[in-house]
Amino acid sequence: MCRLMPPEAGQTSKTNGMTEQPPIRNISFIGLGLIGMSLLRAIKLSPLSRESKIFFQGFDPCFTDSDRTTVEALGLDRFTAEKSLLYSADLIILSAPVEINIALLEEIKQFAPPSTLVSDVSSTKSLIARKARELELNFIGMHPMAGKEQQGYRESHEELLHGRRVILCDDKGVLEEPKGRFLIALLESAGCTTLSMNAEEHDLVVAKTSHLPQLLSTLLMNHCGDSISKTGPGFATLARLAGSPWQIWRDIIATNSDNIAAELDRFAVELTALSEEVRSLNLEQLESRFDEANRLYQTLKEMNRS
């Protein structure tokens, strides 16, 4: 795993008195929810996007006329359902639930030029990367490590991604090509940091650090449901993810079930061991757990400050 820096080759430059066109001049977002619109707004306001005069268009099948007007005020240059327009972009970012994103790849293969770069913001990567390889698409999986339990474009904000990591999954060297390099530069210009890993490693990591915490929060809330009127702010902090909607998590669990189940099994072993330590008053071992957790928490805070 490595950090990707925005290379100078991704920037616009002047040659013989003429300005070289950036490799990405228009971006289509398909799905305009919390992450899609937050990413759009962050990139739109970035210095590189303004310098490059990037055009942003998008579509969401659930939108009303009022929704369209609102997202245009938030930064979308054009809302369109015309496939000839949507799929002709230099970069297409799929921002729907992951199973819908996977299904859309067939349509992109049919309508988009071969030069189009395709990406997505799904929380799992192995299945969509495999489908993109089968269709021989120029594909970079993208996962902004940001979010909140509320969903929808009305909850979006450009600051949601500021300072956050964006994991990029590339199995074909697309990140080293002009559009891939320019995408890195755009994300960095928007205030994100980028990490690279393959799709399988990504799904293993997020099963532990994202999907497991979500399910533990859900389980905790259900377990304590008869006592929540007596809880304090500490419980609310730990249970925050229990507010996440099932319609988002259904696809995540369906496309990463083996990894998630394995992490639940491992955590169950740890939970059993912890129960035995508490029952036997093994205070020395419990102190060791607290000390290690405190140390790791300080590391986490420092990482989020940098």
Rank of each mutant, 00 (worst) to 15 (best):
G180M: 02
R181Y: 00
F182R: 14
F182Q: 14
F182L: 07
L183S: 04
I184L: 00
A185W: 06
A185R: 07
A185D: 10
L186D: 06
L187H: 03
L187Q: 03
E188Y: 02
S189M: 02
S189F: 05
S189C: 06
A190M: 05
G191P: 05
C192L: 07
C192G: 01
C192K: 04
C192A: 15
T194H: 04
T194Q: 05
T194P: 08
S196H: 15
S196P: 00
M197K: 00
N198C: 07
N198F: 09
A199R: 04
A199T: 10
A199C: 10
E200C: 04
E201Q: 10
E201F: 01
H202G: 13
L204F: 08
V205W: 00
A207D: 00
A207Y: 03
A207R: 05
T209S: 13
S210P: 04
S210D: 05
S210W: 04
H211T: 01
H211E: 05
H211I: 12
Q214T: 12
L216C: 13
L220C: 02
M221E: 09
M221S: 14
H223P: 00
C224S: 14
C224M: 13
D226E: 15
D226C: 02
S227Y: 09
S227L: 15
S227P: 00
I228C: 01
I228L: 15
T231G: 02
T231L: 05
G232Q: 12
G232A: 15
P233V: 12
G234F: 03
F235T: 05
A236V: 04
T237I: 04
A239S: 15
R240V: 08
A242Q: 09
A242I: 11
G243Q: 09
S244Y: 09
S244R: 09
P245K: 15
P245W: 11
Q247C: 11
Q247P: 06
R250Y: 06
R250S: 10
I252R: 02
T255R: 10
T255P: 02
N256C: 12
N256V: 01
S257A: 12
D258R: 14
D258V: 12
N259Y: 12
A261S: 11
L264T: 08
L264N: 11
D265W: 02
D265I: 09
R266K: 14
A268E: 14
V269A: 08
L271R: 01
L271G: 00
T272H: 11
T272V: 07
A273G: 03
A273H: 12
L274V: 06
L274R: 07
E276F: 01
E276H: 08
E277M: 15
V278D: 04
R279W: 00
S280R: 13
L283W: 13
Q285T: 13
